[in-house]
Amino acid sequence: MKKLWITLTYLVFILLLVVPIVKIFTGAWQEGWSGFIEALSRKQSLHALMMTGMIVVIVTAINTIFGVMLALYLVRATWLGRRLKQLLNSVVDLPFAVSPVIGGLMIVLMLGPSSIMGAFFEDIGFKVVYALPGMVLATLFVTFPLMVREVMPLLQEIGSQQEEAASTLGAYSWYTFWHVTWPSIRWGVIYGIVLTVARSLGEFGAVLVVSGNIMNKTQTATTLVYQDVENFNVTAANGVALVLAAFSVGLLLIMEWAKKRKEVH
């Protein structure tokens, strides 16, 4: 009985996860090393990877700072009423329930050229939708809960006593945060960063809608894969996908490592 279950588990993993990953690797080499290099060295590939990189960096930085701060407020703040805190707490999860396409649509509706705000920004020469700011916004929306949800339980677990102790010893909030709170939540934050990077690296639906997928301008790595597939250029798609997949596997390894550190502390 036990053997059967273990065999079945292995079977599911191999069919569902291992074989596809292997396929991406072999697929990218279908036309040899040169095919892979060619797919990657196209102008649009390089540009798309650069766009993805920029989005990842910007989104991760913003989401980390705001996510940690918001988690601190939602757990510790006394100036928020209990009811309001509960409400905000459930609002945090909303982006999980929103389809990325809808997330993108929201931003187009709010800030698109035909909306009031969008028109205003256009007038002052600041393009949001179909440009980098909109794509960053869309990715921020999608990744928003990741950091908050990582840090909040940690803060709840360590409790506020150590922070209170610091305050009776004369330390103000900034000093207390860096010397008392941060060391306890740091691995949670790192785990949250890894999740945010993974999600912003792979975000597709929301970015596709907001960016308009304009080649060499707003195209990201994932939307390039999509376009290549639509154009029946599967080998090229494979090349870019391989880069993304390699990053993901790397992130997965970091995730495991961060998880272990998180459990130790």
Binding site: G202, E203, V225, S248, V249
Partner: peptide, 30 residues
């Protein structure tokens, strides 16, 4: 159950979260 490769499989579970969905789609297509 304790069996060889258990930890590896346990880490692999998160792969679909780490992998861009478009890449996932491409894999199935291939």
């Amino acid at each position: 159950y304790r069996f060889p490769g258990r930890r590896l499989l346990n880490s692999l579970v998160d792969l679909p979260f780490a992998l861009p969905t478009a890449v996932g789609g491409l894999m199935i297509l291939l």
